[in-house]
Amino acid sequence: MDSAELLQRESFVEKNARQRVQYLLDAASLRELLDPFERLSSPWLPLQDIVTQADDGVVIARGTIDGVAVVVAAIEPAFQGGSMGEVGGAKIAGALELALEDARASKPVVPVLLLETGSVRLQEANCGLAAIAEIHAAIVALRQHVPVVGVISGPVGCFGGMSIAAGLCSTLIATREARLGLNGPQVIEQEAGVDEFDSRDRPMIWSLTGGAQRHATHLVDTLCDDDSADIRTAIAGAVARPVGNLARTQAVDAHLERLRALDTGRRADAEWAREVMAEEIHGSGEGS
């Protein structure tokens, strides 16, 4: 890439949630649902002296991407680490449930989830977890009707219950700076000890949970540069794809068989994970 191209490249990571939505949707098609002027903010954060945000860190918007009707749910990484609270979580779950009603009424709306989240907001605990469960259920129901597209651009990554949501998506798009994992590095270090997992060893962490590794092991479908145009192209392709043999989480038996065959005494590294996961496991496509 020469200097002119580098200067023109527009980072997706640098955009905030609302700018990402504005960038992705076709011009003039954007209609934000429950926008900041609705003042729907967390009732729990003020009790803990934390300043709220008028959209609770989640932007929901209807519109089109290259003419395809979509609903985009974008999590704002800069607000409370992209954590899922009661209100923000309910906004996503509600949007997905509306999309499900539309899909059942033969008015397909494709959900696009921009997942920059450490998962549940600890200050809101169960309320956030409940919303995450609703998100999971909605994705599973929706993907029978429409593709459900997840995007992890980084550098927050996607962890905890929301990493399960990412796994449930029919198409998952990531950059190499993104990370996808059930537990974040500090949590693993705290539980397993620094000898097992050093959360400061950045190359090791990315080698196991980074976008490139997740792509090589077929847990991510499309690997993009942090280039807004590339990411939009990948999303546009995914939302237009027909529903088919897509959901990897449906192939439960094949995954379990693979897990059972693992030598759990062996220390996992990136190479070995790629070996074990070399073959892509497809879903059955017969519904969940």
């Binding site: 200067l7 700076e177 190359p203």
Partner: peptide
């Protein structure tokens, strides 16, 4: 931040045509 010619260490690597090899602690990929 949109004014910055590079917004991450990875961007600096790209600007250098892959010649810059950042130490591990600055890598996020």
């Amino acid at each position: 931040r949109a004014q910055l010619a590079a917004s991450s260490i990875a961007d600096l690597v790209d600007w250098s045509g892959g010649l810059y090899e950042p130490p591990a602690r600055f890598r996020s990929w």
